[in-house]
Structures are given as C-alpha cells and as structure tokens.
Amino acid sequence: MQIKVEHIVKQYASHMALDDVTFVIPEQSIFGLLGPNGAGKTSLIRIITRITAPDQGRIYFDNQTSNPNHIYMIGYMPEERGLYQKMEVGEQAVYFARLKGMTRHDAIQKLRYWFDKFEIRPWWKKKVEELSKGMAQKVQFIVTVIHEPKVLILDEPFTGFDPVNTNLIKEELLRLNKDGTTILLSTHRMESVEELCSHIVLINKAKNVLEGSVREVRRTYRTGNYDIRYKGHPVSLVNGLWGPYQLLENKEEDDHQFARIYMDNPDQTNVLLQALINEVQVVGFNEVIPSMNDIFIRVVEKKEELPRAAQQPN
C-alpha cells in the first residue's frame, strides 16, 4: 500500500510540530522516518495512524483519502510500549486483535502461529508483569502484526531487544515486506536504516529536509573521496596524482600504505587508476560512501545553523 503525506501542518499551542510536510511512502517499501528528537516524527505517526488529526493537509492510502477503515490496515507499535500488566498474555493479545477487527476464533488461530514461531507458547497464561522486558517486546510485536496489516508503523522497534531478538524481528520485517507489507520505521539507529530501509525521509524542525531512496540519498551526499591502498613510496603516489586530484591523507597500514584522495569528477576513476598503476602497486581502491549517520548529522547540523535567527523563541 502506498501512502501519500501531503502538506501536513500540525500546530500545538505555541509550538509548530509539523510544517507543510509532504512525501510519498512507496508501495512495499521499508521506509525510514528519520529525524532528531522533537523533530515531529511522533506527531506525524499519530496523524498517519489517525490518533490525531492534522490542522491542514491530507493523508492518502493508495490514493484514497484517509478514513476510519484504514486503521484496520495499519499495525502500529508505539515507541513507549505498553500492555496491561495484570492481564494474561494470550487473553490480552486476543483483545488487541479483536480491537483491530478480528474475530475471536481467527485471533486465537493466528496467535498460536506467532506464539509458536517466537517460541513463547508457554507464556500464554502468564501475566504481563511476570515477563521480562524482551519477552514483553515480543508480545508487543505479535500484537502489532497479528491482523496482517498492509502497513506496519514501528516507532523505534529495536530498543530493548538483545541482538538475537533484534535479528529475529529484522528477519520478520524483511519477510513481511517481501510478502507485500509497506513498513514505516521511525528510528535513530542509522545502521538499521542502512540495513533495512529502501527509502527515507528526514524531518528536522517540523520540516521535511531530505527525502528519497537510500541509494539516491547516498549518491547525492557522496563526498568524492576515494580510499587507495597501495605498496610503494608515497612520493611515487603523489607523482601519479595530477590534475583534478587532491591528496587528503596518507599513512602506513600494516605492510602497505593508505591514502584518501578527493576527486571532482566521479567518472575519472579509471583515468586515475591508470596513472597510479605506473607509479605504485595498487592493492585496494574504493569510493568512500557516506553512512546514513554522516548524512543525518550533516543535514541536521547544517539546517540548524540556517533558520536559527527565524526560529520562534519557544
């Protein structure tokens, strides 16, 4: 399911939470909703899940204006997880599934499948307060996906999981995505963005500041830096570098040398290599691709400097 976010504005008493945010979540993508704390991510998620209404703007699900029936197609896991402490796990899961429109019978069937899959069948009769945090997270995840939503919205899904369970959830997400689920992931963890997301939007100070497929974004933010590992004398390397190249750094690494150079035109790699081969023995050559983390920091910090003067005192 494709989701369109169009010109969403949300203002709280003296604070602009979302200022004309527009982007598209493509069908069957894993979409990263990024941004620093307080940027307006949670406000946006609450609008998409119809918990609150926007002041202006519209949300479209498959080109259909958002309406109350759409909530059955959404599975939402809030950042702050919550379950009824004194309720039994199974009973509680059935309750949430039924709130999402499932029949009792279907809910129990599905839950059995998931409980077996996550190997938590023995907890069915336990109260939530008896579970560890990780266990409760598993239950929470099941509750989120139980009604086979077409859209999964997960706010910081990996906090509180150990690496084994994080992997388990990641695999599940990838499988669900392959089966057609569109996934919206709000997170600070850039490594999981790189690993999972096909598209991202970066929200900062209530505004959409960066948007696109992860590949595109990284290409846009490529630095033009290349790492070269070679055997030979650094002076020979410098001899080979002429024209549009710039040596940024050179150091010794084990039995070889390491150099980082900058090159204006990314199509010139072969030319550069040909020149270098004559001078030194090249053992490694690769482009330095910026991590999402770097991009995030660069965009957020740059944007922070610009509008500061125009900022509201609040």
Binding site: R46, T49, R50, I51, I71, Y72, I74, Y76, M77, P78, E80, R81, G82, L83, Y84, Q85, F96, L99, K100, G101, V143
Partner: peptide, 16 residues
C-alpha cells in the same frame, strides 16, 4: 491512569 502510565493508550486509540 493505568492505561496512560503504561502507555497502552496509544496502542488502543490507534484502533478505537
């Protein structure tokens, strides 16, 4: 208050 402090609220009002 239980629903609010346990943060169940957000989960439930995404369906009702």
């Amino acid at each position: 208050m239980e629903e609010k402090s346990n943060r169940i609220m957000e989960l439930i009002i995404s369906s009702v």
